[in-house]
Amino acid sequence: MKGLRMRAIFQIAVNTFKETIRNNVLYIVLFFVVALIVLSVFVADWSVFARIQVMQDFGLATMSLAGLLLAVFIGVGMLGREVSQKTLYQVITKPISRAQFVCGKYAGLLTTLLLTYAAMSTMFLCTLVYLGGTIKLSLLCAVLLIWAEMSVVISASIFFSTLTSPMLASFFSLAFYVAGHLNDLLSIKLVAARGSLYPRLLTAIYYVLPNLEHFNVRDNIVYGIVLPPAYYVLALVYGILYSALFLALSCVLFDAKDL
C-alpha cells in the first residue's frame, strides 16, 4: 500500500518534471543566467577585490535570483493551471489523493530545479576555473544551500497557490522571499524593542517566518571565513523542516478545497 502511494507520487513527479522542462520560461532564465555568469568576468574587473572573489559572489547571487524566478513563475502556475485547464480532474478521479498530487508536483519541480542548478553550477565552475580559480567544497555547499532555500520558496509558492489566484500567489511568493531575507533585521530590532506587546509580536514574526539569510553564505565564501560542517547540515535540516511544514499545510488546504 505504502509502495503504491510512493509510486503515485513518483509518477506525478515524473510528469511534472517533463512538463516543466518543456516550459520556455526555464530556458529563458537559464539563458540569462549563463549570460550573466559570462558577463561577471567584466564585472569582476571593476571591483576592488580579486576577480575570483567577485566572480564567486556574483555567480552565487545570480543563481539565487534565477532559482527564485523559476520557483515563483513555474511553481505558482503549476497548480493553478491544472485547475483552470481541468487536467486535475483526470488525475484525482483515479485512486490518487490530493496530498499525493501536491507532493508529486513538489518533487517534480524540485527535480527540475536540481537539474537547472546542476547546469548553472557547471557553467559557473567552468568560468571560475577558466579565470584561474579553484573549486572548493564550500562553494559546492553554498550552491546546495541555495537549492535548499529554493525548496522552501517552492513549498511556500505551492502553499500560496492553494490559497489564492496564481497572480496573487506570485506576488506573495516574492514578498515571502524578501521578508525571509529581511528577517535577520528583526533580531536586531528585537534588541531595541520596548513595551509589552511589540517585542513579543516581533519575536513571533521572527520565528514564524523562515530566516532565508541562513542559506546565504556568500559573504563567508568571499572573505574565506569557513563555516563548520554542522552549519550546512543544520541549514539543510532547517530547509527540509520548513518545506515539510508548508507542504503539509498545502496538502490540508488543497484537500479541503472545493474544486
Binding site: D45, F49, Q53, D57, F58, N220, V222, Y223, P228
Partner: peptide
Amino acid sequence: HRAPPSMAFVPQS
C-alpha cells in the same frame, strides 16, 4: 562566523 558586509561590488575606480 560573521563575515563583514561584502565589498565585492565596490568598484575599483
